[in-house]
């Protein structure tokens, strides 16, 4: 196992799931492996399904950065409530700088 970094997922009912993520894994893979509900990720992180949509908390949004081009297209078409902090969690890699990263899970994935 590599270095660990905390990721906190908040579902649409306000429940918190705090998970020890391995640095280098994606925020999507971390959620799926630990059974955090609401992040579906059917395509396994290939930016093909838009079912791992999250809203990044405001304090971490600048660190996480904006979506890439391919992700932008999927977010634009694929998700139910696009916000300025919307990202596909398969495109966010856990780093030490993201320790404590908090993301909200939308009530529905497409």
């Amino acid at each position: 196992m590599g270095t660990l970094s905390k990721v906190i997922y908040i579902d649409s009912a306000g429940r918190e799931y705090a998970v020890d993520a391995t640095v280098g894994d994606t925020v999507m893979a971390t959620a799926v492996k630990h059974g955090v509900p609401g992040i579906v990720a059917e395509c396994g992180g290939n930016c093909s399904c838009a079912t791992c949509h999250v809203w990044v908390s405001a304090e971490f949004a600048p660190v996480v950065g904006p979506p890439n081009d391919m992700e932008e297209d999927l977010l634009d078409m694929g998700v139910s409530e696009r916000r300025s902090t919307s990202r596909l969690s398969c495109q966010i890699r856990v780093t030490e700088a993201l320790d404590g990263l908090t993301v909200e899970i939308p009530p529905e994935q497409p």
Partner: peptide, 8 residues
Amino acid sequence: NRPADYMA
């Protein structure tokens, strides 16, 4: 290489 078309 046209994901927006695919999603639409």
